[in-house]
């Protein structure tokens, strides 16, 4: 097999995507991680760097999953998984927890998404206007309320269509909210010009990336 430009590249794995996002979170930030791949980010915060994780159900200062024999039955995160509490952690009720979100106190929220548009629009809660039982949870609060919204997602759907688009076709979670995207193919900022490529998977060319992206890509100025 000849090595064509499109077969030589190596997409980032999910742990690598999480690791890349984790590396960009500075010490001291208060961070909410969405359900799914974003949750993996907490495993990759560099040793010695203090980042405080928040969960919508009133948990601030959340630690990793417990050992099986050390589960606290009352200590879960918003994904309904058992978690631990770090020294310095605190509990609060739902309105205070969402005050942290809606009051602009969270430095960062990282969510998964179905689609992100070049103007920062995000669609991550319903895949059609007629979803039988739509479920929004805290996604709209997080997208509208956190100081920054990053998205961690696969670059394309299973059938190969781009999740980066010029305009979201699915119902919006929030308009103009996304600031950065980490995919299995690239890291991109959302700017006034649209998507700006910050980095790409090893071996991938800008042309390859553009061919897999449903919106115009730009390079940093």
């Amino acid at each position: 097999m000849s090595e064509t430009a499109t077969s030589a590249f190596k997409p980032f794995t999910r742990p690598q995507m999480a690791q890349r996002a984790a590396a960009d979170i500075p010490e001291g930030w208060y961070v909410n991680l969405g359900i799914g791949i974003p949750t993996m980010i907490s495993d990759y915060v560099p040793v010695g760097r203090e980042v405080i994780f928040h969960s919508e159900n009133g948990v601030l200062g959340m630690g990793p999953a417990p050992e099986k024999d050390k589960i606290e039955p009352w200590l879960i995160n918003a994904g309904k998984q058992y978690v631990t509490m770090l020294p310095g952690g605190s509990f609060c009720h739902h309105a205070d927890s969402f005050s942290m979100i809606r009051g602009g106190h969270l430095d960062l929220c990282v969510l998964g998404a179905f689609q992100v548009a070049g103007n920062g629009d995000i669609a991550n809660w319903a895949t059609s206007e007629n979803d039988t039982a739509p479920a929004v949870g805290g996604a709209m609060d997080l997208a509208a309320g956190a100081k920054r919204l990053w998205v961690l997602m696969e670059h394309t759907t299973k059938d190969g269509s781009s999740k980066l688009v010029t305009k979201c076709s699915y119902p919006l979670t929030a308009p103009g909210a996304v600031k950065r995207i980490y995919t299995n193919l690239a890291t991109l900022d959302v700017t006034e010009r649209g998507f700006v490529v910050l980095g790409m998977a090893p071996g991938l060319s800008l042309e390859d990336l553009q061919a897999r992206t449903g919106a115009k890509l730009h390079l940093p100025v």
């Binding site: 309105a95 927890s97 969402f98 929004v136 949870g137 805290g138 709209m140 609060d141 309320g145």
Partner: peptide
């Protein structure tokens, strides 16, 4: 359907 934070705030 109500966003979770709006649901909590509506009660508060």
């Amino acid at each position: 359907i109500v966003p979770q934070g709006t649901l909590a705030e509506r009660m508060r």
